[in-house]
Amino acid sequence: MTETKLHLHGKPVEGFVELHEHISPVSTYMKVFGALLVLTALTYAVSYMSLGPASLPVAMIVAVAKASLVCMFFMHLKYDERYHVFIFLSTLIFVGIFFTFTIFDLSSRTKLQEVQGTFFLKDFDREPEAPPPMPVEAHGEGEAAPAEH
């Protein structure tokens, strides 16, 4: 990268360096590729273990790890202008705001329902009815899926 400087009245002008380019060696890409494949295999394998409530966090941690690898190396965020990292992370913060408040409201709403005696249809469906006697056939694509979860 060339050191580009613009001077005005003898003082360097801020923010004139525009481009941060970084050429990663092919070996870096290959290492990241390998790591991504391993993580994919891991998350796939873990899904067959019965982790119960831990399965969502585990899957999300693996996904975040994969996503960070892609961001840092494939999208060059590791070497890029800090401002691009800032944009990316602040986007995630706003997604977080969106999720937090909405889920917070929807999960704390039951109180109102009890007081008012109102209900949502979904509360009836919470308790699954007994399955009809119809035998569940194997459906061709999800055979490996165990019946219990």
Binding site: F101, F104, D105, L106, S108, R109, T110, K111, L112
Partner: peptide, 10 residues
């Protein structure tokens, strides 16, 4: 129909 708690926070 928002929850009261959320309404207070908002």
């Amino acid at each position: 129909g928002q929850s009261e708690l959320a309404a207070i926070v908002f």
